[in-house]
Design a protein around this nucleic acid. Structure first.
Length: 852
RNA sequence: GCCCGCGUGGUGGAAUGGUAGACACAAGGGACUUAAAAUCCCUCGGCUGAAAGGCCGUGCCGGUUCGAGUCCGGCCGCGGGCACCA
């Protein structure tokens, strides 16, 4: 049994070193010292009560960065907190009766207990939850500041309304157009809601994307597309007969060049003309009502069958004297974008074509040349994005140009004829932050009959959520609270009522990164701390946040700057961003007597069978881990079985961090085995006399190569490649015949290189090998590049681009000589058959290609 | 539907436009062992060949290039987002 005793005991080692870090305050950040600061942040978790592999992966990545930066002489801030408001706690309260505040705090405690054993280098002294009144009170103070600066306003907006539960539903709670709880057909309803004027910053948020050099290109592109800047023209189409006092319908278009192909005008069911008609025409009213049955999300609207209603109205065609176009109400026209009206050009737009076919509207070629037919046959869709638009010549009397120029020129032409107004529009809409829910940050305003909407006085903040609420019925408990709403008007002192809407949880997560710089400040931030710690040097989180969370945070940083809560230098709060992939797992299911699926946890399945009953399970390909599909692996089991270091090592090995990774139990076991090997190797090397063994050159070169590669791969977020480098170096060290002294240096270096991944094991090896102090505080090794240069290189020889042979030559051999040697190889001689090559390409140090 | 990604052995993946499959996992074979576990060693894209080698091969079709997994165009499949999930 002695072999067993020699195995490394992860849990003992991990507990020991966590206690040592705690005692030394190794990860407590303070604004002092002469080291450069480095702020690394992972997106904080929603306290669901259990950590999952995605958290382990995300926070381990951040930890690798944090520990590496610490070792390279930075003063590191690496905080953690809780995105604690949100629907799940409120839903749970309705189901179980447990108050959200109670359950949230329990879940935070439970998650923290699971996170601590992973040994992340977090400064827990800065921890807060967004549901702490100290946090959301500061958020309320900022809301009032934003009001002062004109960044907040109220307007009507549509919500999903459940007519049975009499409550507003989140998009997630609408399933196939029905309320998830009641099953009732969901309706759209207009409510007066609070908005942030993020659209004032459309241009700035777009322009500043260019400066985000260390953000993934795809995220920048998604944000730019989301903001959606377009140059177009607003053209008033004159009604042939006015509707009330409305004389025209303005259409915004980015493709005025297709005007000659227009065959109808479509307006939103919420357009003033539609509303005017609705009042007098029950058929219009019925159609508009059906449009309002649709869910509010863009996806549902775009995918829904395109329906129209002919109003019988018509408008004059702007460029074809005497011609008119019919006006339809279309369920696909958004009132929120542009003017709520579009002209349809079926020949050049697939959606318009579908609509025209359905309702037998003409399909006219906008780009017809003299002598060509105007009407387009049934299947003659002309591509919408015509590159060369010669029609311009015919249409506007100007030369042929490329597409965007053609459009710009057309806009100028329309403007010159006074037919419309060129303008830039953005797709980005203002941020509706009102939520008709309890478990969120109360909006700190009061409604007074005399004074209107009045912000709460700052000295009365925080406006705390009342604890004595019930969840026995749907809707917002704040609305039915007997006394909480009653308050004196902050302006006139007369009895008034509190706002009962709370804030979108995206508000909470739009500035927590700033709060971490001074979590106890009596103001939202402390300027000295914000100036020192901001920006976040490295932000890490799921790519699912690529648009909303990151865009809102960018807006918030600007708004906070205007209100004096962040310095000018922090308007772009995240210097570098890394978006990680998801952790996935196979799904195991059996079926009940009604063929409905029953899902099973991976821990209950072995060899395709349920361990309990032996029943075979269906295996569904890997998908994002989700509780509902039960394809979740609880990291706690893995950590107990293999140790935190093995879990950390495994989640970062194999898969590149930006890509999804499939969880396999064997992978975690393999990680554990490898760490055990390293531990045994350390033990063996420690027992070697320094002068035992021989030549050190190969080991030394391998060590410096490992230092160079691992460092580069950590710095570029290629954590999987760094692990491959470490495997390789460990293999070389394990077989090395170098001196004891060289091997001891090598294993200490290996421990250092591994320390961001496996900090506990590394500390243990460090101590075992006589390292000074904690490895967490030891300076990162530096590669001696002069040792890495090889004297000779092996060049592949290609014949017509296919590898056929290779030659080994001195690194700096001149091209001509390499060429000569290549031509002398058997493979080339054989291929040439006595003839001469057409061409020889020699890329020094790389390759030789002989072209026949 | 729209926007953005991704697609390489049995599996995860590696590859500044320059030797496709590094490094691992799984599998198979072997050593050690009474045996098993653990550990160590070997093989491991396909076809072909005694071997040397040859041919094919990075989702599909085409293009650029001396040379394409990598760049361009068009498809197919999968994933993320679509403004009240976080």
């Amino acid at each position: 049994m002695s072999a067993y005793d020699a195995r490394y005991n992860a849990s003992a080692i991990e507990t020991k070193w966590q206690a040592a870090w705690e005692k030394a305050g190794t990860f407590k950040a303070s604004r002092s010292g002469d080291k450069p600061k480095y702020y690394v942040l992972e997106m904080f978790p929603y306290p669901s009560g259990r950590i999952h592999m995605g958290h382990v992966r995300n926070y381990t990545m951040g930890d690798v960065v944090a520990r590496h930066k610490m070792a390279t002489g930075h003063n590191v801030l690496h905080p953690m907190g809780w995105d604690a408001f949100g629907m799940p706690a409120e839903n749970a309260a309705m189901a179980s009766g447990i108050h959200p505040q109670t359950s949230t705090h329990q879940q935070i405690a439970a998650m923290k207990e699971q996170m601590k054993p992973l040994g992340w280098s977090l400064d827990w002294s800065r921890e807060f939850a967004t549901c702490d009144p100290e946090y959301y009170g500061q958020q309320q103070a900022m809301f009032i500041d934003f009001m002062d600066k004109g960044l907040v306003y109220r307007k009507n907006a549509v919500v999903n309304w459940d007519p049975v539960d009499m409550t507003v539903l989140a998009n997630e709670q609408v399933i196939d157009g029905k309320g998830w709880r009641s099953g009732a057909q969901v309706e759209r309803r207009e409510l007066t809601q609070w908005f942030f004027k993020i659209s004032d910053y459309s241009e700035e948020l777009l322009a500043a994307i260019d400066g985000l050099d260390n953000w993934p290109a795809k995220v920048k592109l998604m944000q730019a597309n989301w903001i959606g800047k377009s140059r177009g023209i607003e053209i008033p189409f004159q009604l042939t007969a006015p509707v009330g006092d409305i004389a025209d319908i303005a259409c915004y278009s980015t493709r005025p060049d297709t005007m000659r192909g227009a065959s109808f005008v479509a307006i939103s069911s919420d357009h003033p003309v539609a509303k005017a008609l609705e009042a007098e025409n029950p058929d219009v009213a019925a159609f508009c009502a059906s449009c309002r049955k649709m869910a509010t999300n863009e996806e549902a609207m775009e995918k829904a069958e395109k329906l129209g209603f002919d109003t019988g109205l018509s408008v004059a065609h702007p460029t074809e004297p005497g011609a008119t176009l019919p006006v339809w109400i279309g369920n696909f026209v958004l009132m929120d974008y542009g003017t709520g009206a579009v002209f349809g050009c079926p020949a050049h737009d697939q959606r318009d074509l579908d609509f025209a076919r359905k309702y037998k509207l003409p399909v006219r070629n906008a780009f017809y040349m003299p002598g060509e037919a105007v009407e387009v046959g049934n299947d003659a869709l002309v591509p919408a994005k015509t590159e060369t638009i010669e029609f311009i010549d015919h249409f506007a009397g100007i030369g042929a140009v490329t597409s965007q120029e053609a459009i710009d020129t057309t806009i100028d032409w329309f403007e010159a004829k006074d037919l419309g107004t060129g303008m830039v529009k953005y797709r980005l809409r203002d941020w509706g932050l009102s939520r008709q829910r309890y478990w969120g940050c109360p909006i700190p305003v009061v409604h007074c009959d005399a004074c209107g909407v009045v912000p709460e006085k700052k000295e009365n903040l925080p406006v705390k959520l009342p604890f004595d609420v019930t969840f026995d019925q749907p809707g917002n408990p704040l609305d039915r609270h007997p006394t909480w709403r009653d308050v004196d008007c902050p302006a006139c002192g007369k009895p008034a009522q509190r706002e009962t809407d709370t804030m979108d949880t995206f508000v909470d997560s739009s500035w927590y990164f700033a709060r971490f710089t001074a979590p106890n400040a009596a103001t939202p931030t402390n300027m000295a701390d914000a100036e020192y710690w901001m920006n976040v040097d490295q932000y890490i989180g799921g790519v699912e946040h690529a648009i909303l969370h990151l865009l809102y945070s960018r807006f918030f940083a600007r708004a906070m700057n205007i209100c004096g809560h962040l310095p000018d230098s922090a308007v772009e709060p995240f210097d570098a961003l890394f978006t990680q992939g998801m952790v996935t797992h196979e799904i195991y299911q059996t079926r009940d007597e009604n063929e409905r699926p029953i899902y099973h946890l991976p821990e209950d399945v072995a060899d395709g069978k349920l361990t309990a009953t032996g029943e075979a399970v269906e295996i569904i390909p890997s998908a994002k881990m989700s509780k509902s599909k039960k394809n979740v692996v609880d990291p706690v089991h893995i950590i107990k079985q293999y140790g935190a270091d093995a879990a950390r090592w495994f989640v970062l090995s194999d898969s590149p961090p930006e890509r999804d990774v499939e969880w396999t139990a064997s992978g975690a076991e393999a990680a554990h085995k490898h760490l055990n090997r390293v531990w045994l190797l350390c033990d063996r090397i420690a027992k070697m006399p320094d002068d035992a063994g021989g030549d050190d050159a190969d080991l030394t070169r391998a060590m410096h190569k490992a230092v160079q590669e691992v460092t580069l791969n950590i710095e570029t977020f290629a954590f999987n490649k760094a692990i491959a480098n470490l495997y390789e170096f460990t293999g070389i060290l394990g077989k090395s015949k170098a001196s004891g002294a060289a091997q001891k240096l090598a294993i200490r270096t290996l421990a250092q290189l591994m320390s961001p991944y496996t900090p506990h094991l590394s500390e243990d090896i460090w101590a075992h090998q006589g390292g000074t102090g904690l490895i967490a505080n030891a300076p990162w090794p530096v590669a001696d590049e002069t040792l890495l240069v090889q004297d000779t290189v092996t060049l592949p020889i290609q014949i017509n681009g296919k590898r056929r042979s290779e030659i080994t030559v001195p690194r700096d051999m001149p091209k001509e000589q390499v060429e000569k040697l290549a031509l002398a190889t058997d493979a080339v001689i054989r291929a040439l058959e006595g003839g001469a090559p057409k061409k020889i390409i020699v890329v020094p140090g790389r390759i030789v290609n002989v072209v026949l």
